Simulated assay, not measured.
Amino acid sequence: MSATESAATIAPQLPPPSTHQLALMIWVAVFPTLTALNLLLGPVLDGMPSVVRTLILATIAVPIVIYGIMPWLHRGRRAIIARIARRSGLRTQ
């Protein structure tokens, strides 16, 4: 059975991430995104008021994180849980 099949068989029974898991996933998605955006757009946004700069960065970062990065992190979490379940000998129905 491949990792994809294992993840698919465990997915219906998989609970949502805990608060701590979700916080870690969000941090892993947001920090590099904001860092990259600051490096790319810093010169363009230099001199703007902090509130305007933050509004622009958040407007760009939120869709990237929600639609681009978080789905990958959720799939990765499912794959990790499926791998742990396989290694521990747990069977999913």
Rank of each mutant, 00 (worst) to 15 (best):
M1H: 14
M1E: 10
M1G: 13
S2H: 13
S2M: 04
S2A: 07
S6V: 04
A7V: 00
A7P: 06
A8N: 08
A8K: 08
I10E: 00
I10A: 01
A11P: 10
A11K: 07
A11V: 04
A11Y: 06
A11E: 05
P12C: 03
P12K: 02
Q13W: 09
L14A: 03
L14H: 02
L14I: 03
P15T: 01
P15A: 04
P15F: 06
P16S: 11
S18I: 02
T19L: 03
T19S: 07
T19Y: 10
Q21P: 10
Q21Y: 07
Q21F: 03
Q21G: 06
L22N: 05
A23L: 09
A23W: 08
M25Y: 04
M25L: 09
I26N: 06
W27T: 12
V28W: 14
V28E: 12
P32E: 02
T33W: 01
T33P: 06
T33L: 02
T35D: 11
T35E: 08
T35M: 12
A36M: 08
A36E: 03
L37R: 02
L37I: 05
N38L: 07
N38I: 03
L39W: 04
L39P: 08
L39V: 07
L39F: 03
L40V: 13
L40Y: 11
L40T: 14
P43E: 06
P43S: 09
V44G: 06
V44I: 14
L45K: 07
D46H: 15
G47T: 03
G47M: 06
M48P: 12
P49C: 13
P49H: 15
S50F: 15
S50P: 15
V51S: 14
V52Y: 12
R53Y: 07
R53M: 03
T54G: 06
T54K: 09
L55K: 10
L55E: 05
L55T: 08
I56K: 01
I56G: 00
I56T: 01
L57F: 05
A58K: 12
T59V: 07
I60W: 01
V62Q: 09
V62P: 11
P63S: 05
P63W: 05
I64P: 07
V65S: 00
I66Q: 13
I66T: 13
G68R: 04
M70S: 01
M70T: 00
M70W: 02
P71W: 02
P71T: 01
W72F: 11
W72E: 12
W72A: 11
L73S: 02
H74M: 11
R75N: 13
R75G: 13
R75C: 07
G76A: 04
R77S: 04
R78K: 10
R78G: 05
A79M: 11
I80G: 12
I81F: 14
A82M: 01
A82V: 00
R83N: 12
R83L: 11
R86L: 08
R86S: 12
S88W: 15
Q93P: 15
Q93Y: 12
